[in-house]
């Protein structure tokens, strides 16, 4: 599904990713943990194609294609989804219309018929239940005036509607209370199947109680410095990151 080799990336001339390797197979859930500022969001942004993240070295293949050659929208059409750590507010752009345009852009790319208003409405009704999204929020401008938790939930809602092949969740669990966390986890779990892959960027083992990862990685200093199974997360929670840094050094 996703294969990252020796990835180097700069932001504003400063090297943030320094030779990162990661391989994700279809059907797998990977968790990426690591200290603040280690490059987790940068990795997510590079994968989604943000301008200003300059890849200076390395390759990324996604579903057999050179991911780095694609525009952000081409990546979305091809089934990649990033749930942002800090979703932006877009005044004047209606949430529901954005979703409809997004779904239909993806469907068009896949050669499927576009959804009409009725079909689309049925789809969002169904998905709203899963993430307990309030109708009132839906009809507002994208994320405008949403609380932190509502923004995160909206990301999961969008994800559940777009049904991506590869979803990257950048700290979607941060700042959520336990009920909201369960909702997010449910949204993710309902998406999981053998054809889809998920990358969870998180600081908290708590999320992994609800979504069981196949692999856990530690990103530090722009590289994956340790990988393991789900028990690694528990160990990190107890001992922090310093022991690994020492182990590697």
């Amino acid at each position: 599904m996703l294969n990252i080799q020796n990835l180097h990336a700069k932001i504003g001339g400063k090297e943030i990713l320094k030779g990162l390797n990661l391989s994700v197979n279809a059907g797998e859930v990977h968790a990426i943990m690591g200290p603040n500022g280690s490059g987790k969001s940068t990795l997510a942004n590079v994968l989604a194609g943000r301008d200003g993240c300059d890849v200076s070295k390395g390759t990324v293949t996604y579903d057999g294609q050179d991911l780095l050659k694609l525009t952000p929208e081409e990546r979305a059409w091809a089934g990649l989804f990033l749930a942002f750590q800090y979703p932006v507010e877009i005044p004047g752009v209606n949430n529901v219309y954005l979703l409809k345009a997004a779904v239909n852009a993806v469907r068009k790319y896949r050669g499927e018929a576009e959804l009409d208003a009725v079909e689309f409405l049925a789809l969002i009704k169904k998905k709203m239940k899963i993430v307990k999204m309030q109708e009132e929020l839906l009809n507002r401008s994208v994320n405008e005036g949403f609380s932190g938790g509502e923004k995160k939930r909206n990301e999961i809602f969008q994800m559940s509607i777009l049904e991506p092949k590869l979803a990257i969740l950048d700290e979607t669990d941060s700042g959520l209370d336990i009920d909201a966390l369960k909702i997010v986890a449910e949204g993710v779990n309902s998406l999981c199947n053998e054809a889809r892959s998920i990358i969870l960027v998180t600081h908290y083992q708590r999320l992994l109680d609800y979504i069981k990862p196949d692999h856990v990685h530690v990103l530090s200093g722009g590289k994956i410095i340790k990988s393991g199974g789900s028990d690694l997360a528990l160990e990190l929670e107890k001992k922090g990151y310093d022991w690994i840094k020492e182990e590697v050094a």
Binding site: G49, P72, A76, V88, L98, Q158
Partner: peptide
């Protein structure tokens, strides 16, 4: 970027 990441060209 947000809109493009949501499949809008």
């Amino acid at each position: 970027f947000y809109l493009r990441s949501r499949a809008i060209d």
